[in-house]
Design a protein around this nucleic acid. Structure first.
Length: 574
DNA sequence: GCCGTTTTCGGCCCGACTGTTTTCAGTCG
């Protein structure tokens, strides 16, 4: 059974091959849009196909729907098989090289017989590229540098790793002479879980001085490009970074443009066009050619008849339509959170005492803290036996007595879900706890039916309150379990269990797609840091960002609820 | 290939930067 992600990858592949083949650009664009739309859809195409509803997927029309159906029915696609006979699939990897696009890939193939990265590299080293039409020595050199960069470059990086770097650069940028204003934009501003390049924007009347300081910065390894409005560098650790500069009067359109996403911007520009306007990073231009400049981003949206759209929503997942109808959601904010329901102490694999975690929660202004150390089955994490669990309750009571009414402690467990779906503690032990988070940590690679049934069985245990990091993914390397999400969500709704948005930057699990779908089904969500030390409680903002990208407001999230309501919910099945 | 109260046919975002091309094509975001 092909997942939406797998289908999307196949349509991207088709788009790449068509582009190299020289197909009209709008056809390849249609495949890419369909792929992106599948990625953003929580409803599995397989399910929609059964209900004859494939055409409901945005950007999927008759031709692509038929191809999805064929892929689901047969696991193959005749159209793609033929395409791969026409265009060598090895050419697709050439597109990863900076400065190599479909036209050059086709040129290398047709005029030099190159069909792989290895062949491209040996041709470049032998000086055979410079004689191709439209290329010279410099192009050949850039391609060699690009091949090197490709080897150094790891995949996308975690938001949690890049964000601190970005904030330091922003501080540096704001301190440069002539810089009036600066922001981090791009996927960082949209809080995507992973980041490719880092995009910074600045307002200045003296862009060349700012650009010179940027490209001359001590951390820069290599300058990839330098102009008046835009420069691009590779840092010593391999991260690539862009800086865009416009005068302060144009900062609004610049910030809007660089924040993306690309698809959001395309939609916005189409909307502008319908109004007879042309939107760019420099201005909004009327049909007659008269420019209007915008210093602020909200005014750009206003000029198009829209309320300001929070960056987290700018993924072309219906936000422009919602804005047009004045139906944008009121989004959750970190300040709405006053509980963390999944944390660890030195009773298991956390690094500090229960008392220290409680103080950290107080320092954040929380009203509720759940301590959920691991259960005995997770031996590597020093999981608690039943005896130790009961001993921990005694310590918790003592700490609670010292805290008085300032913070409500909940004794919980992050209880292992065994490979068969049974739990690591017997029911009578779970019944003693204030809160139970059940999680998968092992045997994540079980077949779909098995791992789904396992999770469903755990949810049906009447003592389970929350499913922790439901997919089990760990970015960038470990994929989540191959779950049948519709079955998981149906079981969650039926059993009254909440699903976690785990805020660890490497997890961010549920992701925004399934969090949005879960909330639309009325399933409560819990945003938890899974902190193993006090500082990690600061990860809450990453969890909140997932919720915002999922269009969630405070009401959808357990840890914003008034304490009495939360406690009542925890008692719901007892 | 998709899509539509300005269209079921004829559109489909816009500009910066680079290299090679003497006026522009390719790539990128």
């Amino acid at each position: 059974m092909l997942s939406n992600q797998e289908l999307a990858a196949l349509f991207e592949r088709i788009a790449d091959l068509l582009e190299i083949k020289g197909e009209v650009i709008y056809k390849t664009l249609a495949y890419r849009r369909a792929a992106e739309s599948l990625r953003g859809s929580a409803e599995e195409a397989a399910l929609l196909a059964n209900q004859n509803r494939l055409l409901e997927i945005p950007a999927v029309g008759k031709a692509i729907a038929e191809k999805i159906q064929e892929l689901l029915d047969t696991g193959k696609l005749e159209f793609l098989v033929r395409l791969e006979q026409e265009v060598p699939p090895g050419l697709i990897e050439l597109l990863q090289v900076p400065d190599v696009g479909p036209k050059k890939a086709a040129l290398f193939w047709k005029q030099a017989g190159i069909t792989s990265l290895a062949e491209l590299e040996s041709a470049a080293r032998a000086g055979k590229l410079r004689s191709l039409p439209g290329l010279g020595e410099k192009s050949e050199g850039r391609i060699l540098e690009g091949l090197d960069a490709l080897k150094r470059r790891s995949s996308r990086r975690l938001l949690g790793n890049v964000r601190p770097v970005a904030l330091r650069w922003l501080q540096w940028l704001r301190a440069q002479p002539g810089v009036v204003q600066a922001e981090a934009a791009g996927s960082l501003r949209r809080w995507r879980a992973t980041i490719g390049d880092l995009d910074l924007v600045a307002a200045s009347e003296n862009s060349s001085a700012v650009m010179a300081a940027f490209t001359g910065h001590a951390d820069v390894q290599r300058v990839l490009g330098q102009g008046e409005n835009k420069s691009s560098v590779e840092l010593k650790d391999g991260l690539t970074m862009q800086l865009w500069v416009q005068p302060p009067a144009r900062f609004g359109t610049l910030l809007q443009f660089v924040s993306g996403s690309k698809d959001h911007n395309v939609r916005l520009r189409e909307l502008a066009q319908k109004k007879g306007l042309s939107l760019s990073e420099r201005a909004i231009t009327a049909a007659g050619g008269a420019e209007t400049l915008y210093a602020g981003e909200a005014e750009v949206y206003a000029a198009l008849g829209l309320p300001w759209i929070p960056p987290e929503l700018r993924e072309d997942r219906g936000e422009i339509q919602a804005a047009l109808e004045n139906k944008l959601p009121h989004l959750l904010e970190t300040a709405d959170i006053h509980a963390d329901l999944h944390t660890h102490t030195d009773w298991s694999d956390g690094s500090v005492s229960l008392q220290a975690m409680a103080e950290a929660a107080l320092a954040r202004g929380y009203q509720v803290l759940a301590i959920t150390d691991h259960s005995v089955g997770l031996g590597v994490a020093n999981g608690l036996s039943v005896d130790r669990l009961r001993a921990q309750r005694a310590e918790m009571n003592a700490v609670q007595a010292r805290l008085g009414g300032r913070l409500r402690l909940l004794q919980g467990s992050e209880v292992e879900i065994h490979a068969d779906g049974s739990l690591d503690f017997p029911d009578e032990v779970l019944a003693e706890l204030d809160i139970v988070v059940a999680s998968l940590h092992s045997s994540l690679r079980q077949p779909r039916a098995q791992v789904t049934e396992r999770l469903v069985r755990a949810m049906r245990n009447p003592h389970v309150d929350i499913i922790g990091h439901p997919s089990g993914r760990q970015m960038p390397n470990r994929e989540g379990a191959d779950l049948d999400w519709e079955a998981v969500l149906a079981a969650a709704r039926e059993s009254g269990v909440a699903l976690e948005i785990n805020a660890q930057p490497a997890r961010m699990d549920l992701d925004e797609i399934y969090a949005r779908r879960a909330a639309s089904l009325g399933i409560p969500l819990a945003i938890d840091t899974d902190a193993h030390e006090p500082d990690q409680m600061g990860w809450m903002e990453y969890g909140v960002s997932v919720a915002r990208r999922a269009w969630l407001g405070p009401a959808a999230v357990l840890n914003t609820w008034p304490v009495e309501q939360l406690l009542a919910w925890l008692q719901r099945k007892r």
